[in-house]
Amino acid sequence: MGEQTADRFADDPAFAVHEGGKLSVTPTRSIDSIADLALTYTPGVARVSSAIAAEPDLARRFTWAPRVVAVVSDGTAVLGLGNIGPSASLPVMEGKACLFKDFGGLDAVPIVLGVTDVDTIVETVAAIAPSFGGINLEDISAPRCFEIEARLRERLDIPVMHDDQHGTAIVVLAALRNAARVVGREIGDLRVVVSGAGAAGVACTKILLEAGVGEIAVADSQGVLHAGRGDLTPTKQWLVEHTNASGYAGTMVGALEGADVYIGLSGGSVPEAAIAAMAPGCIVFSWPTRRPRWIR
């Protein structure tokens, strides 16, 4: 059975990269003698632990916590895959930990939770927080993600960030500024259509508004958010009050006609004709639904 399972994935290089997971724990010091063992563990470690107990701030000097980030997910909103559960989300969290190390020089530990209740997630993350210098919330579905992040930020004395919101928003704003420069446009003159009113869509819309984007329409699966909708959550109500100044009540495809920017932050696809109907020199940020040719 094991050989058959291995053969199923032999031709896909992605599975080879993930075989056995992508992370390991490597000590910063080797244990080469009895003296090393006695200092690394008992009895030497007791002196360090006693000092920290007397002066808690010493933990920042004598433990790994300040340089380690917890990457926490419940697997309810993974990439473009949706609610796939904690086990299936673990490769993604391992990958994020690899990015922290390679691009930021920080160690990170992926933690997937087998619960989705907001209170339980908050209590669980708060309980493990002393082991870490920061919390990176990842792929937690909206609107729960907003409350979880807000409550943890208020409760903990270490940084807490929901990457799907703020990481995505920062990258989108930076890319849009550069793209606008390339096409010779001012960011304040752009009309933007955002597909998706989840965590990423909300955060991107907020940061673009703060950056001075001229006009933004946000669409969910039912169409563009507008005041006439009767199915609005508090978050979507906020979007209605701060976007879509023209009161357009149609579909996302309709909103794209003449638009300068499309930002795709939800599942599904956009007809080619809708992109063709956008303004000349339009800017499109979209997640590819097909595997690029350079990935075999």
Rank of each mutant, 00 (worst) to 15 (best):
M1F: 09
G2P: 00
E3D: 14
T5F: 15
A10V: 15
D11P: 00
P13N: 10
F15E: 07
G20M: 04
T26Y: 05
P27E: 11
T28K: 14
I31M: 12
S33W: 13
I34P: 00
A35T: 14
D36Y: 15
T42K: 04
P43N: 09
G44Y: 02
A51C: 12
A53M: 06
A54K: 13
A54L: 14
A59G: 09
R60D: 14
T63H: 03
A65Q: 09
S73L: 05
S73D: 08
D74L: 07
G75P: 00
T76A: 05
L79F: 11
L81A: 11
G82F: 00
G85H: 00
G85D: 03
A88W: 02
L90R: 10
L90Q: 08
L90I: 06
G95D: 05
A97V: 08
A97F: 09
K101I: 11
K101W: 13
D102A: 13
G104R: 02
G104L: 13
D107T: 11
P110I: 08
P110A: 12
P110E: 12
V118T: 15
V122D: 09
E123N: 14
E123S: 14
I128D: 14
I128E: 13
I128P: 06
F132W: 10
I135T: 01
L137W: 02
A142K: 02
I148W: 05
R153Y: 07
R155F: 09
L156K: 06
D157Q: 15
P159K: 07
H166G: 10
T168N: 05
A169I: 01
V172Q: 00
L176P: 04
A179E: 04
V183K: 10
R185K: 15
L190E: 12
V193Y: 11
S195N: 12
G196R: 01
A197E: 02
A199F: 04
V202M: 12
V202W: 04
V202H: 10
K206Y: 07
K206R: 15
I207S: 04
I207K: 03
L209H: 10
L209A: 07
E210K: 15
V213F: 07
E215F: 02
V218P: 03
A219H: 04
A219Y: 01
G223P: 02
G223E: 06
R229L: 00
G230M: 09
G230W: 15
T235P: 00
E241D: 15
H242M: 01
A255P: 02
V261N: 12
Y262R: 00
G264F: 04
G264Q: 09
G264K: 05
G264R: 05
S266K: 06
E272Y: 00
A273E: 12
A276S: 12
A277Q: 02
M278C: 15
C282E: 13
S286M: 13
P288G: 06
T289Y: 09
R290V: 08
R291K: 14
R291C: 08
R291A: 05
P292I: 00
R293A: 13
